[in-house]
Simulated scan of single mutants.
Amino acid sequence: MAGEIPDLHAQERTGTGKGAARAVRRAHMVPGIVFGGDVDPLPIQIPYNVLIKRLKDGRFKSTLFNLKVDGHEDVRVICRDVQRDVVKDLPTHLDLMRLRRTTKINLFIPVEFIGEEEAPGIKRGGVLTVVRNEIELIVTAGDIPEKITVDLSGLDIGDTVTISQVTLPTDAKPTIDRDFVICNLSAPSALKSAEDEDEDEESAEVPTVGEEEAAEEGES
């Protein structure tokens, strides 16, 4: 099962309609609605500053929240829309959808890298480049993984880890069909420079076709 699901605190909103929504905004709150789950829609309001912070944190629409509203049971929700002011681009309304445990959703799951100390390539001074520190997966709401683990212990310089090499939780699959890269291990810059110098020396020692012909004429 997943790690800790973040709480999202909201208040029940008593009034509905445009007039009530404007009053909510004047009180520095953002009106919203919680729908789905075979339950009547629940009008809510969230402090403006709280919502702005969540939006700035990123991934708001792909994060599962534990919605807490006084007088109501906690429920898992995911954001389906955030309406914004066309001029100021500030949030004016949000829609949250209740989720059943069997509901399929897209979520970004963090990647944990282990075994770095045992990796032969890292012992030789290789540089680990992380291409993706999180992966978007299709998962069920009742079985969300806390993280995806990537074992680096067998990695050598020049090796690459792709999604097909990673063990994913049961019933979870990536949203991207292709075999994308998660990380790779490249040679240290000093080693690269030495290899480049060797290549330059080798190329300098090999005569061109014209040089070979000139050498042969000189000998004759």
Rank of each mutant, 00 (worst) to 15 (best):
Y48S: 04
V206T: 12
T140Q: 15
K18D: 06
G158D: 06
E112H: 11
E197T: 12
E118A: 12
V69W: 06
A10S: 00
V181M: 14
G115E: 06
L67T: 04
P120H: 00
V206Q: 13
L185S: 10
I148R: 08
T129H: 13
S62K: 14
V127Y: 08
V82Y: 02
Q11M: 11
D177H: 11
D89E: 13
H28G: 02
G158Q: 03
I105T: 10
R178L: 03
V82G: 06
V39L: 11
H93I: 00
K173A: 12
P169H: 13
P188R: 03
R100A: 15
L96H: 08
R178P: 01
T14F: 12
L152E: 11
G37E: 05
G210M: 13
V87S: 08
E199S: 13
R98A: 02
R59S: 14
A27F: 05
D74Q: 12
K104W: 07
G142Y: 13
E116K: 08
L152M: 15
D7A: 15
S164R: 07
P120R: 00
R124Y: 07
P120Q: 01
T140P: 07
T160G: 03
T175G: 05
E205L: 15
S186V: 09
V209G: 08
M1V: 10
T129D: 08
E202A: 15
E112F: 04
K104L: 13
F113H: 08
I109Q: 05
R76F: 12
K147P: 03
I176M: 14
